[in-house]
Design a binder for these strands. Structure first.
Lengths: 131, 131
DNA sequence: TCTTGAGATTCCAGTGACTGGAAGCTTTAT
DNA sequence: ATAAAGCTTCCAGTCACTGGAATCTCAAGA
């Protein structure tokens, strides 16, 4: 398989696949013409990576997960631990965004949004203790 | 004021302040020694920028907001529009994260997390239609 | 056979918003 | 006088790609 085919089959752009080879996530063979020659196994890995990235795992998490995926002696606890760590990060980020959203929504609500210059949003941003 | 003082008064690191000058958000004067000489006005701007960034506005949004802040003929509708756009983006991101969180939490819950290799998380990542 | 176009290769640079570090100048304190 | 702190600039790195240029290979049509 050439890169185009794995790209369409895995859903990842060729650029990304090359990048994944660059950083050592995959290691496809090479044909005589210098083209990458992907095996089914490479395609599986790429699919795995694509799905992991879709779930928001970092590249380093993906590296770990991929290693566990390939390790028949893994303990599922290891996988779960990585996933739980990521879940906590997601929860943190959601909490952050929601708090931020609260502040912003309040500000937006307070602003008349008309043709006059007075604006509680700008007042808040400028640091005055307005409320 | 030297950069150290504006840094501690605005809460922004000196590096960030220099960066903001670099990209044209502020334009402090210079003393004879080559040091940046900040006025109160610069400090106000930096505080404004710090607060805007804390609310998650992009640098380009900050540029727009700062221009509106300085424009006495602004219409509050312009400010509100920027803020509403940002609010929508935040809502989108929260929705994305929550959907992702749902999937991930389900997967984590399904995984035994013991010393055996069987793992529904990896099964899902590998793309099999497991459930 | 020649050509054309698609698809492959590498390498360099840019994204956003900083951040770290090196090398060197100025000021302040001892 | 000297040492430390603070300032300067510039270059490189972060994360995970993405765009583009220049070049090479391959498959199909005239």
């Amino acid at each position: 398989m050439n890169i185009g085919e794995v790209a369409s089959r895995s859903g990842l752009p060729p650029k990304t696949i090359r990048y994944y080879e660059d950083i050592g996530l995959i290691n496809p063979m090479r044909g005589e013409n210098g083209y990458r020659a992907f095996r089914e196994e490479d395609l599986h890995k790429l699919t795995f990576l694509g799905r992991s990235r879709m779930l928001g795992f970092s590249i380093e998490d993906c590296r770990t997960l991929l290693a566990l995926y390939e390790d028949r002696n893994r303990e599922s606890a290891q996988v779960k631990s990585v996933a739980e760590g990521h879940l906590r990060q997601i929860d943190d980020k959601i909490a952050q965004l929601q708090s931020l959203r609260g502040t912003l929504a309040h500000l937006v609500q307070c602003c008349q949004g008309d043709d006059r210059p007075d604006c509680p949003i700008l007042e808040d941003l400028s640091g005055r203790p307005a409320e």
